[in-house]
Write a protein that binds this DNA or RNA. Structure first.
Lengths: 230, 230
DNA sequence: GAGGTCTTTGACGCAACCCTGACGGATCGG
DNA sequence: CCGATCCGTCAGGGTTGCGTCAAAGACCTC
């Protein structure tokens, strides 16, 4: 998953320099030339970090910070031509995370950007719940790559785990055999359905209470497989 | 509850100026004149933010950052006389949160400090600084960089320690071999899995009760390794 | 420059894993 | 009723990956 950056500046050459450097490092980049657009884009695109120039044509930069802080904690990295200590204090106290004065070194800016993103990384309270899935027979922890059954850890081989991962991520949905094969074995494997039969059997044997009558790893004849929580 | 700051600098007048200003704003302040003392104080006093001068007499400032990041996510605000962009990048990538060059304005520094503290405020309840991890066979003290086994300190080489640190930080979770290699040996080492085999063997020989049947350093064939406490 | 420690590298035996093919059961349609 | 198709099961063989040991290379200290 790549990081999305929103660049806000009214000077095209600055924007261009930033966009080029960021894209070269595999960031996804949006840009806005003024405060209004910036706030709209931030709301619609949900960037992982905002690089904000304070000298905007339509509104005060500090108000942009306040506007963002009203609803999001996305890291804000402020750019400014002003060296005035007062302005820095205002921006930081309004909720900015960092403040860089122009002209800036690209290496430094990128390093500060990495720092800001890194810091915010594990701030996903909405995603912690998705990491573990429970059934009455076993528990899958996607983050730790662990499967627990009756208090004991179950050993899964890489292929078994990969297969389970794809199924669990699509809980309740049918996953076609072609899709399953390609996600686990690679794009060139579309028809080797016997692989699926073998490995589904392994999963059932290791996880189902009664492997002969599976309750969670459901077979949809001719189409694919489905993982059900209950 | 007041905020606790650890100031690390070898120049007494800087320390004095900071201490005075911080205390006037009702911060609680500790100070250290060198890296060793800084790491000790950080471990014993658990500051909410660290202000760190990079030019210390006893060790490289970046190593102090790494030493802290081995066990805590406390915000680190770096002070430095150097304007070199390279040093900034190194410090930030080592885990620093902000970088201010001397001479600095006190107002700006305080604003950056507030920003750093504010950001760290909603610290995840599960991520409190855990400095020591115990098993029935040995004890790891991440802050002191010490491993104790049966009352005797175990001697670890730098690489062994680094490996252990990464595993312990992810207690219970599986760490992929690629991630392990890149965190310990650097981004360009993604495939030399033989390094892992050799060093995992060393760790097991030094720490496991029965190295042939490891209870804590579990290998997941084809995927990676996992540290389990029990 | 010598001795020691730490890291890197190569070779080997062994276990684990992945693929494969054969067989039997179930379902459906002719 | 019979054939076709699809799925589940099992076991064997080739390959990969892991643990171990030992020795060479790099680095530091004295």
């Amino acid at each position: 998953m790549t990081t999305r950056v929103l660049v806000v500046d009214d000077e095209p050459q600055i924007v261009r320099a930033l966009v080029i450097n960021l894209k070269a490092r595999h960031y996804e980049v949006d840009s806005a030339p003024d405060g209004r657009t910036a706030l709209e884009l931030a709301a619609s695109r949900h960037p992982d970090v905002v690089v904000l120039d304070l000298g905007l044509p339509d509104m005060d930069g500090v108000d942009v910070i306040r506007g963002l802080r009203g609803w999001t904690r996305v890291p804000i990295l402020v750019l400014s031509a002003r060296h005035s200590s007062d302005e820095k204090v205002q921006a930081l106290d309004a909720g900015a995370d960092d403040y860089v004065t122009k002209p800036f070194g690209m290496d430094e800016l990128l390093a500060r950007l990495r720092a800001a993103v890194r810091r915010a990384e594990p701030a996903g309270p909405g995603e912690d719940d998705v990491t573990t899935v429970e059934t009455e027979a076993f528990t899958v922890d996607l983050a730790a790559k662990k499967v627990n059954r009756g208090g004991r850890d179950v050993r899964l081989t890489p292929t078994e785990w990969h297969l389970l991962e794809v199924l669990v991520r699509n809980t309740g949905r049918l996953v076609g055999q072609r899709q399953l094969l390609q996600e686990v074995w690679g794009p060139s494997y579309g028809t080797e359905t016997n692989y699926l039969r073998v490995y589904m059997a392994q999963l059932r044997r290791k996880l189902e209470t009664d492997p002969a009558h599976p309750r969670h790893f459901i077979t949809e004849p001719g189409m694919g497989y489905r993982f059900e929580r209950e």
